[in-house]
Simulated assay, not measured.
Amino acid sequence: MEASAKDHRRAIVFFFAILISLGIAWKLAKELEILYVSALFAVVLMPIVNSICKLNIRGWRPSRAIGIVLMLLAVGLSLSLFFFIALPPVTRDLSQFLTDLPQRIPVAVAKLKHLPMADKLGLDTVAQKAQGAIEATASYLFTSIPMWLAHIFDIVTAAFLCLYFMLEGEHAYDFFLSLVRTSSRGRLDQTLRKAETKMSKWLLGQGLLMLTLGVTSTIVFLIFHIRYAVLLGVLMGLFNIIPVAGGIITMGLVCIVAALDSWTKLFEVVAFYLIYLNLENALLTPRIMKSSVDLMGLTVLVALLVGTALAGIVGALVAVPTAALVVVLLDEYAVKRS
């Protein structure tokens, strides 16, 4: 009877401890989100820091702190180049696009009216709705600027936490492992380190594919004299993270812009994308992504949708690395066990 009473007390204490923990987690949801994002980016960036620390310059090897500083300098230089070289033409093209599109919609409708059965499609109504949607989108972009500025403090906080995780994250990692049973500790350690490598390689490979498509598209669009070439090239690169759907969306937009000028430009754009798509599938993807975790397109798309729904753009940024982590854990503890 006495042992049974103790078990009941333990169960009650455990129940209320779970409730209190869930309540604290709900209350600190934003702070926990920042901690998770910081830790995840630290995990993804640490292989780069480790590679820098392995450099041997006449017998001198950079320490971890120096490796982090060098990585930050490289990131800062890359961002500076983007903001000073790529961002101004992108902003100019976006402003010109929003200005020109309402005026070019009637021209596009007039062209489409020459097609067979066009009179039954209600093109005038579609044009009015499209123009209203464009104006609403432009208004939202300008009115949401203060909301974006309000998140600057969270971004700065996450950046500092990421630095601390890279400097002292091993101590927190060792403490986490100490909470696991000794018999299971080694396996979990190997699985998490494997997930770390896979996540970093996937992001690096996907980043290279996005950069390749963005730069190639911008150059080709400039050669073909496509309107808003820089903006469309950047969008092609960014949306390449979304499998299949991202390419369809951006190519649809590019085709519309090209068709408004001439059918020849439309044909050139479609031909370029088909050639690039075949080269990417045959050469680039197998070489760049061969050592990364095998994520199905559906997995990436679902991860992006869930991450965006839970935490907006921040959730989208960490969605795919989180999916890679989940895939590795499932492969180790569910697939291999079965």
Rank of each mutant, 00 (worst) to 15 (best):
S291N: 15
W148R: 15
S78Q: 04
F83C: 07
L28A: 10
L204H: 14
T99I: 10
V328Y: 01
Y140E: 14
Q128K: 11
Y333K: 08
T143M: 10
S292Y: 04
G23S: 04
F84A: 12
T137L: 15
L141D: 00
R58M: 08
E332R: 14
G246Q: 01
G214V: 00
R92M: 08
A323Q: 04
G307I: 07
H8R: 15
S63G: 15
I241T: 09
I219G: 04
G186H: 13
I313S: 00
E135A: 10
V37P: 01
V43C: 02
A127H: 09
L72F: 01
L77Q: 10
L231N: 02
F160P: 01
T143Y: 03
V13G: 04
G76I: 01
L304G: 01
S95P: 00
M251S: 10
L94S: 07
F224H: 09
I105H: 04
P106E: 11
W60G: 03
H171L: 14
Q96M: 12
I68Q: 02
C53N: 14
V328S: 03
M251K: 08
G252N: 01
F83D: 09
A316W: 01
S78M: 07
F82P: 03
P88F: 08
K120G: 10
T137Y: 15
L149Y: 09
K27D: 04
L279A: 12
V318T: 13
A324K: 02
A133D: 14
L231R: 06
P62Q: 11
